[in-house]
Structure formats: structure tokens, C-alpha cells
Design a protein around this nucleic acid. Structure first.
Lengths: 188, 188
DNA sequence: AAATAATAGAACCGATCGGTACCATTTGAG
DNA sequence: CTCAAATGGTACCGATCGGTTCTATTATTT
């Protein structure tokens, strides 16, 4: 747990928002869990919504880093992305994608929350695309978009079904795509 | 607008819950929009949550009917499902899938809301499977599950991107699947 | 027409909401 | 050591939350 008050708020909020839902977490509950005075909270964030945006931006950086590292460890087989995903989605406290959830709870489709969620996925697609390009697949952007759609579908499926079989499904589908976009020649 | 008080509440709630989010709609706002007395509300539903479940069950039946009819109109080309989907998702007031949204807002993964959402998608997969089976595709259950995953991914994508291109993506992916599971012989 | 049921609306309940103001304590820099 | 900044805690603000109770009115039924 960070000693810094601001970071402690972000860390605590990240956990609570994800577990309970954003609207469901009150300021009182939040600052109590973080051990922060009420005034200190509003000294660091002008509102609950501002805190949410900070949380999302923080999570954006973190998950992109992790995702990038995972991609790098996939070697020449992009399908292994789904193994990484499956492990994350199999956690007991899995409650879907924090960005999708935030988007759903923030009704305004043109608000900052949606913008952050959109940016996040675009960046993730970029990572995927780079990886696919390096592995020699044709139209990596297009293929990366398809992968992202499969991941999104898997997230929703896992949340709904309560098991990680949707991830296996997504992997199966992706394998079909890969044989169609098979590399003309391996780059490594 | 139905004259019956109960139906009027369900219809109004369906609109407001979808547009504003479930938690964001208060009882006062709801009954005012429906033109219903406060006491009458609690005479028909024991709680806000009970109303939500009624709304979801109602929407379940309606959308299944529509979806079934759309499937029937697809002829021998299952890909046309995605045209139907694209039209629905292109609406100005599109805010994702009501069942997914309800699932996200209801943090409890084992609650009634999740159960209803799960049942709904299972029923939808069943319709898809029947259709694919009639068209002579092998492993229709499996293929239907894949279609559902693609639809879920498209829903999320459209909500995030603000356009219906994810549906076209899903359609592209589905076309790849279909050639792999091509019917051994046409049934019609 | 009389009796019964259902209605809309308002008053009210305790609890909680997001946010502000103030205070006593702790912390860190000069 | 001193002083100023930042902190955690508490009380408080108006507003709204989900839900209960009551009343006066409207429909329905007989």
C-alpha cells in the first residue's frame, strides 16, 4: 500500500470501484478504507468523478505494461495471448473489464470516461498489431482489431457464464483467423 | 403506452434504466415519468430490484421474439444475422446490451440479475443453434456459441467506438468460421 | 346508488449521498 | 527550534435515496 495519500486513494478506489461498482462506492466508504481524511480527499481530487478518471488512467498504464510484457512472452504464437487472458479472467474476484464497466456505468457516451476507455483499447490494439506485424502476419491492424473484439466478447462471456470457457472459444476463433492470415514467411 | 399501471411502470423503467443506468434512476423520477403514485408502485413491486427483474424478464421475451423472427428472415445465410444486429446497434440511443449493462451494475455475480442475463443469452444461443442446424452446419451448438461471442464483442465495441464497424468485424470473423463449418449439404 | 377496490399524490421516515468548513495533530523544511 | 504545510477526524450542509403511511379521489362492481 502506497504511503502517499493520493496514490493510496487511487489504489483503494481501484479495488473498491471494481469490486462493488463505481456508483455503489460512497466517498465515506472510500476514505475510510484508505484511511484518509475527508478534506484531504477533496484536496487531491475535485470530485469523485475526477478520482475515477485518475484511477482509469492509472490502470490504463499498468495494464498496458502487463499486456505488453505478456505479448512479448508469447514468442511467435499470438494465440498464447488468450492463455494470458484466461489466467487473468479466472481469478475469483473477476468482475469483467474495468473500462467496459466504467463505460456502462457512465451513461454519457461522449464523456471523459468513454474517451479514456476508448483510448485504452486503441492502445491495446496497437500493441497487438505490432506483435502480429513482427510475426509476419498480413494486415496486422485488421487482425488486431479482430483479436480485440474476441477478447471483449470473452470478457463478457466469462462474466456471464462464471467460467473461462469463452476464452477458449475466443482462442479457437482466433486460430481460424490466423490460418487465413498466415505469415508469408516467418520473421524470426 | 400501456394503460395498465404495472405495464406502464415496466415500459417506463425499461427506457429509463437503459438510457440513464439502473442506479442512476431514482424511484421518484421513475414514478413521475410513468405517472404513477408512489404507493401504487410498491403495490405492484416489492422493491426497485424486483422491478428491474420484471423489466429484464419482459425484455428477454421481447428480444427473443424479435431475434427469432430476424433469424427466420435470414434464409440460408446466417451471416445476415449481423445485418440485423448492425441496424439495432446503429440507433442514436444505443447504449449497449441491457442485460450486459444490468450485469455490470449488479455487482453480485450470483444474484438474480446475473441469472436472468445468463438465461437470456443461453436462449439466444439456442435460437442461433437451431438456425445453423437447419442450414446444415456441423456442430451448430459450438458455432452458435462462437456467434454469440462475436455479437457480445461487437456490442462492446460499438458502445466504445461509437460506430457500427465492430459489427462488420464480427461479420467478417463469422464468415471465416462458416467456411470452416460449411454445410455438408444444404437442407433447403 | 352504495359499497369496494384501486388509484395518484403528498407527507414523512431514517439513511446515505457528494461536498464544505473547521479543528487538532503531525510532518517536514528553514 | 520554529513555523508553515499537509494530514486524519468530525460535524455539518442541502439533496436525494429507497421505502412506508395516509388521504382524497377515481373506477369498478354489485
Amino acid at each position: 500500500m502506497p504511503t502517499n495519500a493520493r496514490d493510496r486513494l487511487i489504489t483503494t478506489a481501484e479495488t473498491l470501484f471494481y469490486r462493488e461498482g463505481i456508483q455503489a462506492v460512497g466517498i465515506s466508504e472510500l476514505i475510510a478504507a484508505a484511511g484518509i481524511g475527508r478534506a484531504s480527499f477533496y484536496r487531491h481530487f475535485e470530485s469523485k468523478e475526477a478520482l475515477l478518471h485518475a484511477v482509469l488512467r492509472c490502470r490504463n498504464e499498468k495494464t498496458l505494461t502487463v499486456f505488453g510484457a505478456a505479448l512479448a512472452s508469447c514468442g511467435s504464437d499470438p494465440l498464447r495471448v488468450f492463455d494470458v487472458v484466461a489466467e487473468r479472467y479466472g481469478a475469483d474476484d473477476f468482475r469483467g473489464c474495468a473500462f467496459i464497466n466504467a463505460m456502462v456505468e457512465a451513461a454519457d457516451r461522449h464523456g471523459e470516461t468513454h474517451r479514456i476507455a476508448r483510448e485504452h483499447k486503441l492502445a491495446q490494439i496497437r500493441l497487438l498489431s505490432d506483435r502480429l506485424h513482427e510475426s509476419g502476419y498480413r494486415q496486422p491492424d485488421r487482425l488486431a482489431g479482430h483479436f480485440q473484439l474476441l477478447i471483449d466478447g470473452a470478457v463478457v462471456g466469462v462474466l456471464r457464464e462464471g467460467n473461462t470457457r469463452p476464452v477458449e472459444m475466443a482462442r479457437d476463433i482466433a486460430s481460424h483467423l490466423l490460418v487465413s492470415w498466415r505469415p508469408t514467411h516467418s520473421n524470426r
